[in-house]
Simulated assay, not measured.
Amino acid sequence: MKMFRGKKYIYSRGIAFYPEKEMQLLKKLANKGWHFKRMNQVGFLVFEKGMPEDKEFSVDFFDGSSNELSEYLVIYKQAGWENVANYKKKYFYFKADRGTPTIYSDPESYWIRMKKEWIWLLIRSFIYLPLGIGLLTFIALTKDTSNTILATSGIRIILIISAMVFTALPIGVAICVIFSLVMYNDRTNYYNRPEYFAKRQRIVRDSILLAVIGFIIGLLFSIILKDSL
């Protein structure tokens, strides 16, 4: 957490996988007079000091077109929710008076929202996979090259790191989606009680488990590519 000229910066809990935690963080800070303004490009939530307010918060994923955005916001407004910010016009932050019902009316509608979000995340990340596979193939094919530049260890290390990043990104997103489905398989049952579900989420534990999984995958990559330098 950082403070600068009456503003507070806190790194996002993760709007894709921990929106419930995000809601409770915004609510807690609003009670202390810190008003949420936006999430910047590097993932920091920006707050400005003001009068304390007792509000509920909601973070939602929007999968529609730009032409459907105004209708989407109207639906929230009619339900009593005020749009306070958005992130890349895909994630929208709302606030409302205490006791205002969530926009989702049942577990099925919330499950549809989750599926659309995760499919979008997977598609967005998997566009890098062909590039990663292409680089890995190129590295393997040029293992015994006589080209002075391509034979340089520094160049090959850069190519390998780039290939691993492009390949690991979509795999990492897929692992996070599967992990969330397994660890929090009853999340949809809390569609109208996000504060209760937030208490069950364990970001530190999850981060450690995902780091272990990432380490194992990275180790396998290293074994496969050890002779490509």
Score class of each variant (00 low, 15 high):
175 I>G: 03
49 K>G: 11
23 M>L: 08
10 I>Q: 06
50 G>Q: 04
46 V>Q: 09
8 K>R: 10
22 E>T: 04
77 K>T: 12
175 I>H: 02
140 A>S: 14
179 F>D: 12
11 Y>A: 08
170 P>T: 05
168 A>M: 14
202 R>A: 14
194 P>K: 05
210 L>T: 01
91 Y>T: 02
165 V>Y: 14
110 Y>D: 03
29 L>S: 04
97 D>A: 15
117 E>Q: 10
226 K>C: 14
71 E>N: 14
76 Y>S: 07
33 G>D: 09
21 K>W: 01
208 I>S: 06
126 F>L: 12
95 K>R: 15
177 V>T: 02
211 A>H: 07
21 K>I: 03
66 S>E: 15
210 L>I: 08
141 L>V: 10
124 R>L: 14
33 G>M: 05
133 I>F: 13
47 F>V: 00
161 I>L: 15
27 K>Q: 10
96 A>F: 04
143 K>M: 11
71 E>C: 03
24 Q>N: 09
17 F>A: 05
222 S>C: 13
135 L>Q: 08
138 F>V: 01
46 V>C: 11
78 Q>C: 08
119 I>L: 10
150 L>N: 13
64 G>C: 05
5 R>H: 08
118 W>A: 02
153 S>V: 12
78 Q>M: 09
228 S>M: 13
64 G>R: 05
187 R>W: 04
57 F>S: 05
110 Y>C: 03
40 N>R: 06
101 P>Q: 07
59 V>M: 09
195 E>G: 10
77 K>Y: 06
202 R>H: 13
181 L>R: 09
189 N>W: 04
71 E>V: 00
12 S>G: 11
77 K>F: 08
216 I>V: 12
72 Y>W: 12
174 A>D: 06
16 A>G: 01
170 P>C: 07
125 S>E: 14
120 W>I: 00
48 E>G: 10
164 M>H: 09
179 F>S: 06
180 S>P: 00
42 V>E: 15
25 L>W: 00
123 I>D: 01
90 K>S: 11
69 L>H: 01
53 E>S: 10
187 R>Y: 04
216 I>S: 01
30 A>R: 04
15 I>A: 07
143 K>E: 11
18 Y>H: 09
164 M>L: 15
87 Y>K: 13
7 K>A: 09
214 G>P: 00
207 S>P: 02
75 I>D: 14
134 G>M: 08
51 M>N: 13
9 Y>R: 00
178 I>W: 15
212 V>N: 08
216 I>F: 05
19 P>G: 07
112 I>T: 07
220 L>R: 05
178 I>A: 14
202 R>M: 13
215 F>N: 03
14 G>A: 11
181 L>A: 11
184 Y>F: 11
92 F>K: 04
209 L>M: 13
195 E>N: 13
108 E>I: 06
223 I>W: 05
18 Y>A: 10
162 S>K: 00
161 I>M: 14
156 R>P: 06
60 D>Q: 09
151 A>D: 12
185 N>L: 06
191 Y>D: 04
24 Q>H: 03
